[in-house]
């Protein structure tokens, strides 16, 4: 992962954005290869959208820079705009226009030649499954349709790079799944996809992940790399009263952190072998009915929760002072 890679189509170099005293994005470095699906993860307010907006030329960086499709984001935002598609978390088509009118509008704004216009319009309508709703007002469509139409309009000019800012927020699981199938198809065709999300299952679909927290990039790598990078060992405890169990487990020696997870707990330990008997004994002593604690392979969610917790422990005193 170096910025000098010749096949990198999105490069961030010490990218920084401040709003007054607040540092929204703090010196981020990363690069995305052609045809890659890059997942940009982080809690709300971490700086995901701010970063994407700087890459799309919607915000000017306060310091540092980067390039998209070979153009400098500081000096050539308009050239970048010709080569990217962007879809924001907020539905941003005209609700008072019909499906066809919206498509025609973006086809015109991107100056598609007349011959290609019809072909692309058919493609968008077929992709979004809107054959029956060409003349419907966009405002009357359901969320999944709107989102696919928005994607269609954003990529009507077949850009080589697509930025998606939480594209699946507020969309039902089935629509989400078919949306991701579409993203795979695009990536297979060589399109680079830069997507932000906070759904961990979606993160698993990505070729490469970056975790941003409080404006800083705290992890970067493939999903497997990130899971492997977790030095702590994870123990799962199934139990019927997880709230009470959590209270007990958190204070035990050898336990670094514990969190509710489904119908049980995920406990981060330095060494699982030593912690399991301690946990089992403590819970039995407290009279809680639990299953046998066992060591599990961490999911991405475990990895990120652990990374964020670690970062909080490290910076919390400084943050308190700063405020």
């Amino acid at each position: 992962m170096t910025g000098t890679d010749s096949s990198a189509v999105v490069v961030l170099h010490d990218l920084e954005r401040r709003f007054g005293d607040f540092v929204a994005v703090n010196r981020i470095n990363l690069s995305v290869q052609r045809g890659e699906i890059f997942g940009f993860l982080g809690p709300n307010g971490a700086g995901k959208s701010t970063t994407i907006r700087m890459l799309c030329g919607l915000l000017t960086p306060s310091a540092g820079g980067g390039s998209v499709a070979g153009f400098d984001i500081n000096t050539a935002p308009e050239q970048i705009k010709e080569r990217i598609g962007y879809m924001s978390q907020k539905f941003s088509l005209y609700e008072d226009l019909t499906v066809e009118e919206n498509i025609d509008f973006y086809a015109g704004i991107y100056k598609l030649p007349t011959a290609r216009r019809e072909e692309r319009k058919r493609w968008v309508i077929a992709m979004a499954g809107l054959e029956e709703h060409r003349q419907s007002l966009t405002g009357t469509l359901s969320g999944g349709w709107k989102q696919r139409l928005a994607l269609g309009c954003a990529i009507i000019h077949e850009p080589p790079i697509i930025f998606l800012d939480e594209p699946t927020a507020g969309v039902d699981p089935i629509s989400r799944r078919s949306f991701w199938e579409l993203i795979y198809q695009l990536a297979d065709a060589g399109v680079t996809v830069f997507v932000t999300t906070h759904y961990m299952d979606e993160a698993e679909y990505c070729d490469c992940l970056g975790l941003i927290y409080r404006g800083e990039l705290i992890a970067l790598g493939t999903p497997e790399e990130l899971k492997g990078a977790m030095t702590e060992e994870l123990v799962e405890v199934a139990c019927e009263q997880p709230q009470e169990a959590l209270f007990i487990v958190e204070g035990l020696p050898g336990v670094q952190h514990a969190a509710l997870f489904g119908r049980g707990l995920h406990v981060v330990t330095a060494r699982a072998g030593e912690a399991i008997p301690v946990i089992a004994t403590a819970l039995t002593a407290a009279g809680l009915r639990t299953g046998q604690p066992e060591r599990i392979v961490p999911s991405l969610e475990d990895v990120f929760v652990s990374l964020i917790e670690a970062r909080d422990r490290q910076t919390a005193p400084q943050v308190e002072v700063a405020r």
Binding site: G57, L58, K81, S88, K90, F91, S92, E95, Y106, I109
Partner: peptide
């Protein structure tokens, strides 16, 4: 306000 502005200004218009 309705959010369409962001989609417009990200085009080369």
């Amino acid at each position: 306000e309705i959010g369409t502005m962001e989609q417009i200004i990200v085009t080369p218009i």
